[in-house]
Amino acid sequence: MGKFPRYFTIWQKLGLSGVKLTAYLVLLFLMAPILVIIPLSFNAEPYFTFTEGMLALDPSAYSMKWYEEILADQKWILAIKNSFYIGLMATLIATVLGTTAAIGLTSGQMPFQRMIMALLLSPMIVPLIITAAGMFFFYTQLDIAGSYMGVILAHAALGTPFVVITVNAALAGFDYSLVRASLGMGAKPVYTFFKVIMPLIRPGVISGALFAFVTSFDEVIVVLFLAGPEQRTIPRQMFSGLREEINPTILAVATLLVIISGLLLLTMEYLRARGEKMRAGDVD
């Protein structure tokens, strides 16, 4: 945008600069809250506020003790293990089921395609409090409430819509006659899947899996209702920390989570760039 067209009046230029300034202010609004917690997590005092020492950059007002506390606290260690375990298992289930379903749905042969799609994507739309309450009643009857199994199945259900959407998008414009050709030439279905379909949708599958993982990794309401103390996850631990006793350990965890999400975001962007390159390559 840098330069304004010559026919712009001074007012129009000012107006555009105003929009630009607003845009940067909005970015500040988006980023500042996340950045604020990082220095606070090095607070030497057990509260959530900047102390005078911190503002004066006095080194003794800063401390690593909240990070040490995470490592020393069995509950946090368990929560971290649980979050990854539940997240990975749920992602595995969601990715396999979601990818297959998306292939069926985009084939153009699926009856009631629109209705089924709406149903399959509804876990993403229904408020989590409703999902969680329903699961609490139903999973208790099945005797899987308060177990890893219960939480994993629940999180897998919540993750599938994202896989369906991303794989769906990756399959948009995919020519199914390729599959028929491959099958027609005698290739086994499994072989066809991995050699014909998979290379095309891989970025979609991976980004869907990432979404599914993040959904589980970030989810707290279902965990609140369904998990026992043994299945505590990071967000659940943070939630009770915020409700019961606010201390900077939560900020330290939050800082670590920001780093993790930064890494996930970079992976995502890398995949997107690769996906675009691949698609561009098709055209050439």
Binding site: Y85, L88, M89, Y148, E230
Partner: peptide, 26 residues
């Protein structure tokens, strides 16, 4: 890798048979 991690964690989580006690914290 994911599968190995998952299996490893299942093993380490499953062995924990413990008493859960609740109190008021702080």
């Amino acid at each position: 890798l994911a599968a190995a991690a998952a299996v490893g964690m299942t093993a380490s989580l499953a062995s924990a048979d413990e008493l859960t006690a609740v109190s008021f914290g702080g």
